[in-house]
Design a protein around this nucleic acid. Structure first.
Lengths: 219, 219
DNA sequence: GCCGGGGATGTGACTCCGTCACGTGGCCTG
DNA sequence: CAGGCCACGTGACGGAGTCACATCCCCGGC
């Protein structure tokens, strides 16, 4: 019943606010489920309990760009835009893993915002965080070459063992480019010995080289 | 003294909140003044009373991208990120016209946020608006060719008489491209008769053609 | 064990765009 | 009236996105 006690920042909420939230039942969605699409009306404020959600912009030609990701305990700010301004979604959210989430209906959300300072804080913080992430995205997409973005992403997501399981298409969406470009760049990185590639997998061979590339002069 | 009574949305604030704000003295800054730079610590929440402020990301090679503009009555959300998360600025704000503004110090800002529902609403709304604008920016920069962005900008900013006074460099910053590209594109538009160009000035000749271009297939 | 089918990748051709490096011309001020 | 600054024009070049296919690998079904 009391899911608010979990790993999320919501544990710091006032008892009253937690009570209100606890009365909402969590929902389970399978991997690949679409939480919302562009043009849909906002139904409520989404809090992810477990799993993982990706929010992306869809391009007309099938290409899409990952705006940000929602980890457990975080909320999908995209909803907030609609809840506050009444606009529809302009992005798409997909569960990239089996996900358990809570949907806070608009009235409850607004009420909590008015009555719970802690809840406000959580919402604001999430807002600020997303905004930073999007500014970061604009910055890297505008000023860093694909090679650098790619190296940075590999370093960021590689495990301790230097291995990461990811497909080229996923990489492309995450760094805002096209899959073909990723293919060619990965190829070059492999040629220089910085990495080794496999189907759906990348192994870091030369972390230093990657770090140099990631920090390399923007343009 | 009571500048909150002006055209801004702040007029709807509770008397108490207005009182608090009214005690803060507005500041005048000349055109071209830099309100903050990347890396500086956030001093407070900025509300623009009159004038105009542009907030941009700076690239390493001198290029910069206009993130959004702040009109009278609006606030510069960039500050909020810092006030809530403690991060430094990552963008630059420049007054693009002589501007009168109010700087709300952090403690006052936080107190208002806690006590004034109306103030919260204003801040949240501004937040949502900026976020939308930035998503819009990512979308257009990623999925629309320069030609379309250019046409859209011209239509958006042209006066009733179809004239707009703007320099190519300003256009480039606003649509996130390089000045040289703007030069060439404007040239093509002029060749097809859609516009006429002059030093720091553009005249719309064929609005329909521009509209077609602006709405044209993304890629 | 063999066979499709579908997802993941590799490639070549082409165009658009961003960057560099200058050149030109107008306007303003000393 | 001479610099000098600012707005603009241009050619060359490489990076990046798009299209159209060609492979290739893995997994379930038979």
């Amino acid at each position: 019943m009391s899911w608010t006690g979990g790993a999320s920042e919501l544990a710091a909420l006032e008892p009253v606010a937690r009570g209100v939230l606890d009365r909402l039942g969590p929902t389970e969605v399978p991997q690949g489920a679409v939480l919302f699409r562009p043009g849909e009306t906002v139904k409520g404020y989404v809090i992810v309990l477990t799993g993982h959600v990706g929010v992306s912009l869809l391009g007309p030609n099938g290409r899409d760009i990952l705006l940000y990701e929602v980890a457990p305990g975080q909320s999908c700010i995209q909803s907030t835009l609609g809840l506050l301004g009444g606009d529809d979604y302009s992005a798409e959210a997909v569960a990239t893993a089996p996900t358990r989430l809570v949907l806070v209906p608009r009235p409850v959300f607004l009420e909590l915002l008015d009555t719970s300072p802690a809840f406000r804080k959580v919402v604001f913080a999430a807002f600020a965080e997303r905004m930073q992430a999007m500014m970061q995205l604009i910055e890297t997409m505008s000023f860093m070459r694909v090679e650098a973005r790619l190296a940075a992403l590999i370093l960021e997501r590689a495990g301790e063992d230097g291995v990461l399981a990811i497909t080229q298409a996923e990489i492309a969406r995450a760094i805002g480019t096209a899959r073909e470009v990723v293919s060619r760049r990965l190829d070059k990185l492999a040629q220089t010995g910085a990495i080794r590639t496999g189907r759906g997998e990348i192994r870091v061979r030369d972390r230093t080289a990657l770090e140099a590339l990631a920090a390399s002069p923007a343009v």
